[in-house]
């Protein structure tokens, strides 16, 4: 049985096809804002790569920011539930999931069965999210993928406010004017995101094993800063950004089984 999971985030669209809820047949990440053709591109990609057709898919679950407006799904499920399922599938000992996406951050608490039992989301603020990193990378004339490399070169990470993206932006400009080195600024920016989200995690209660998912998890600078901030090792998968889509496909598999039975 093939199931499709689609995670329509604020800055990227992700799709994954699973066979029998176990084997990844195809996956795709397309950088595109919700409301654009990014979703259809991601879906086209997974069908092309798998050689499957729409009729081969038994059940489709949409998740993420754009889940409600996507018409091709059998069911819409919150991204929190999908990330919990996706991460538990990859690391079954995880009890805390930190999911930092393009415009929000969430911390999930899982029980031994991998079901979400508690969660917190950030308030309506870009600080501590992928958007914060985008804004900062733009000021520094860096590609978002370069932040990780630059942070690793830091010798004296700068202090950057974690309260507000707009304030932090002016702080970074002031630090640039004062001659602070780019790697030190980038490390400070990563620390700022980690500090903001760690505070959120402490509200739920941090239980090991802790795992990071979402696009920002790919940034080792933020992961390292988060480990320092929480005092725990962070589990990480190269598929961190696809956890929502995988979780959606797994949810679809369970749902299809329920429907069939």
């Amino acid at each position: 049985m093939f199931t499709l999971g689609i995670d329509i985030g604020s800055t990227t669209a992700k799709a994954a096809i699973l066979k029998d809820g176990k084997e990844t047949v195809a996956s795709s990440i397309v950088i595109a804002t919700v409301g654009t053709d990014g979703v259809s591109q991601a879906i086209e990609n997974v069908f092309r790569d798998s050689g499957l057709k729409k009729e081969d898919i038994q059940f489709t679950v949409a998740t993420g920011y754009g889940r409600k407006t996507f018409e091709g799904a059998d069911l819409q499920v919150s991204e929190l539930t999908c990330h919990a399922i996706g991460v538990h599938h990859e690391f079954n000992n995880v009890r805390t999931v930190i999911d930092i996406g393009g415009q929000d951050a969430k911390v999930l608490s899982l029980n031994e069965q991998g079901r979400m039992v508690n969660f917190v989301m950030n308030d309506k603020c870009a600080a501590g999210t992928g958007r914060f990193l985008d804004v900062m990378a733009n000021i520094l004339h860096l590609d978002i993928s370069q932040l990780e490399v630059e942070a690793a070169k830091a010798t004296h990470p700068a202090d950057i406010s974690s309260t507000c993206t707009v304030f932090a932006e002016s702080e970074v400009i002031s630090q640039l004017a004062a001659g602070t080195k780019i790697p030190d600024l980038v490390a400070g920016i990563c620390q700022s995101v980690a500090s903001r989200v760690a505070a959120l995690a402490k509200r739920v209660g941090v239980k090991e094993t802790v795992c990071m998912s979402g696009g920002v998890a790919r940034n080792a600078g933020v992961r390292t800063a988060m480990e320092k901030e929480l005092g725990v090792r962070i589990a990480y998968s190269e598929n961190a950004q696809l956890m929502g889509a995988f979780g959606a496909a797994l949810y679809a598999f369970d749902k299809a089984n329920t429907v069939n039975s």
Binding site: V77, S78, L80, R115, M116, N118, F119, D123
Partner: peptide, 29 residues
């Protein structure tokens, strides 16, 4: 018991985030 804290304000126009939180609350174990 499950619990959820949603910040509200008389000037709010967008409840997208609240919608996600309420859906996740419903989906919780």
């Amino acid at each position: 018991l499950r619990h959820l804290n949603i910040e509200v304000d008389c000037q709010m126009v967008n409840y997208e985030q609240a919608g996600t939180m309420i859906q996740a609350f419903k989906e919780m174990a």
